[in-house]
Write a protein that binds this DNA or RNA. Structure first.
Lengths: 196, 196
DNA sequence: ATTCCAGTGAACAGGGACGTATACTAGAGT
DNA sequence: ACTCTAGTATACGTCCCTGTTCACTGGAAT
């Protein structure tokens, strides 16, 4: 009863891969179950057999894609040392990854609202943690620290990279350097008091 | 032959208003002609009578909405004087407008790719000009100036405001101040040479 | 009073997607 | 050899949208 389960898994795999391929090309919003089935070389009924609802398919699909395209390992960022060194290294790695996956990421972010709430929340939280980690130890628990964290979370987002690097045609190094500058500038002096 | 044309115009107006209302609530991508007709209290056939294709409707709709919701008048920005004064005033006005229209703007930007190319290009160009105006006289024709313009164009965009003010929960004043700081910081010293 | 026409109401044919059900097939498991 | 079942092929009913046609009505224009 090995080979049997194996074949079933292969079919399931083919479906999730097909879904991932469509999500990263035409986008989740335009991805119908019929299209997934066709792309996977499978009948619509088979898709229904494997995934109760679209959310289940989405979940498998997300997990699969993330496993295939791991983001830069944040745990390797230098946790001590100057803020600008850490920020530069982190942003450069992150922005390089965004550029490598720009084509696939675009439809995903464009159709963000077409995805299950859980997936949206997951992505938002991951970005938030990444941003917080970026300025950990430099952002206190006051207004200035809150603002600094906000900027950090803004900087680590794909939309920010896209705005600077694609729409404004900056190089990744330029975009990263601007981010570094922004963070170090905020660390140097608080915003005008009363600015809130 | 006055009243007659007037009534026709009123119908046309009702349709464009209905379209604008739907575009700013459920979003252009989800706005069907049937829904517009119903919202306008009119038959689908009537809609087809007034607008040859969706693009024509979109055009009328965009013009109508822009006339009803004028953006802050950039021509009133101080063209001389310190960069930070101009940037603060401009960003505060812009961000206040974004906040006033946050609910309507969200679906519009979300469904940007569902709109006619011409409309997309128009919006992009307007933002670009706004950004350039923001740093006019301060950005030279070199790399540093190009980077500064890029940052300015990034700052005046709705997505940037949304990221900072909504997603990161900053006040408009904080977001604007961060923008000011970013621009003045870039004016003070160029990025590290070789960063390109 | 008569003409004109914008808008109505109803219907058509076509297309895509959804979810479900049925009988059948081929290969794995025993 | 026989059973079990994942997947196929096909079809059904439902829904929404599209664009177009047609006869009709009611009010404006003359």
């Amino acid at each position: 009863m090995h080979r049997r389960a194996e074949l079933v898994d292969q079919t399931r795999q083919r479906i999730t891969e097909a879904a991932a391929r469509l999500h990263t090309t035409i986008g989740p919003a335009n991805t119908s179950i019929a299209a997934i089935a066709e792309e996977a070389g499978v009948t619509r009924v088979t898709v229904y057999r494997h995934f109760a609802d679209l959310d289940a398919l989405f979940e498998a699909c997300t997990a699969h894609w993330q496993a295939e395209n791991p983001t830069p390992d944040a745990s390797r960022w230098p946790l001590t040392g100057d803020l600008d060194l850490r920020a530069r290294q982190a942003l450069l790695a992150l922005y390089a990854w965004y550029r490598d996956h720009a084509a696939e990421l675009f439809p995903l972010f464009r159709d963000l609202t077409a995805m299950p709430r859980s997936t949206q929340d997951l992505m938002r939280d991951e970005r938030g943690q990444l941003g917080d980690l970026l300025v950990q130890g430099h952002a206190q628990d006051d207004d200035a620290g809150r603002q600094m964290r906000a900027v950090a979370r803004h900087l680590v987002g794909y939309p920010t990279w896209r705005s600077l690097a694609i729409e404004q045609d900056l190089s990744d190094a330029e975009a990263a350097e601007i981010g570094v500058r922004m963070l170090t500038g905020m660390a140097a002096s608080a915003l005008a008091p009363g600015t809130r």
